[in-house]
Write a protein that binds this DNA or RNA. Structure first.
Lengths: 228, 228
DNA sequence: GAGGGTTATTAGTTACGACTAACGAGCGGC
DNA sequence: GCCGCTCGTTAGTCGTAACTAATAACCCTC
């Protein structure tokens, strides 16, 4: 009982995935989508018209686009493929978490349902990818969580890193891994200076100082006193 | 105004792979290639001209094509990807050997060197795929073996199945697996009747009767008295 | 309410890789 | 030597998805 994959075509799938990621709430303007996909604005207008034709997106005023129900389902399937693949590449094939993004980006458009299911089975149905992103289930349901940016953690508080965003920047990934900023890590904010944007942290007992940008994308969950 | 454009591309790779498989010795006529790839003859002429431009194939009289050195190398890399992927899908993901062909056919064009190497490493550098085909090594060297068709085994002789060709026919694969005709199986020709094309075999102690076509593609190695 | 800047669209092109229809070249049979 | 078959090529189209250049629509400010 698989969800059918009608739209197909690499390019369409990328548009849908981008809309899912950019259009959490509001409709996405053409320009934003164009920048994100690194495609010219006219091309985007064009493609959006086709996707609207196919009832995968709904166009609002001034060309802004949002996913239809069907479009969102399709996008979630692409996201599922992407995240399962990243998980496979890192956890099974032992590739570095910073260098798997492009591979997953490519393969997500070419893995059949059969192979995807087999991968999922082989890995024991993981629910999060190596960056801590939740993996949509077979029905396209995505766990929604309320995470806070690490930079918002007040001085003196502790938390757990749950998600590390921006997996397309390899250097960033490498730095984070280096300093232990990976999902599951415990962090304590030793000193947050909102004025000059300098943050001193303690990660697994080690001190670290970083600017705001260096922390951007690290999402945490405040742990009151929950045991593991 | 753009530069010649280097090969890659799914379609090109399929042409190269087809030429490798069809053109063992002689050059391949346009029509044969067209039938094999299920593409119209004019399209083939066209594509061959481009591949010749790029020095991947050499065109002979009457349009017949054969791979150049560079073309053969490229084709062997595609074949390596295909066979490693099939091996992975069957041996690791536990998919059925009859149903992995299409998946491998698709993925072979999209797996990066990095992922391929990781798969190879993960599987311990296999040298044969699940159908017994040798896997070209990283340098594109392909083990050449002299195997005989099972139908040529004389009455009373025993042999070992080494290779099972024609992996794109699922029904066939299923039948063979059912009757134990898989690489590594020991077979004995109980009665070969060249006249009416009826063959009686013994596979792992079980009798089986088959017509010539039912055996076509099963390649064996005569074992004199080798142990193991 | 008239500019000016941002944003979106229209129009026209390009590349790739397939297609059909129609033409031409080789070759066997008589 | 001509007929006709098979095989290959030429010519012209199509669909997808990108592009640039030019234009139009909107929004904000004065």
């Amino acid at each position: 009982m698989s969800v059918p994959r009608l739209p197909a075509s690499r390019s369409r799938e990328n548009y849908l995935k981008a809309l899912l990621q950019l259009g959490a709430e509001a409709a996405v303007p053409v320009t934003v989508l164009a920048r994100h996909l690194r495609i010219s604005a006219p091309s985007v207008t064009n493609m959006l018209a086709r996707l609207a034709d196919e009832k995968l997106v709904v166009l609002g005023p001034r060309g802004a686009a949002r996913l239809s129900g069907a479009g969102e389902q399709a996008a979630l399937q692409v996201l599922r493929r992407h995240r399962l693949l990243e998980t496979f590449l890192v956890n099974v094939l032992d590739l570095d978490w910073g260098e798997v993004h492009e591979d997953a980006e490519e393969l997500e458009h070419h893995v059949s349902q059969r192979v995807l299911d087999a991968l999922d089975r082989f890995m024991g149905h993981p629910t999060e990818d190596p960056h801590g992103h939740p993996i949509p289930d077979r029905q396209g349901r995505l766990a929604r969580r309320a995470l806070a940016p690490l930079a918002a953690l007040p001085t003196g508080s502790a938390a757990e890193v749950r998600e590390v965003r921006g997996g397309d920047d390899r250097a960033r990934m490498a730095r984070w891994k280096q300093s232990g900023l990976v999902p599951g890590a415990r962090v304590r904010m030793v000193q947050a200076n909102a004025d000059d944007g300098v943050f001193t942290l303690e990660i697994a007992g080690r001190r670290m100082v970083s600017g705001r940008e260096g922390l951007d994308g690290i999402m945490i969950e405040r742990r009151t006193r929950t045991s593991r």
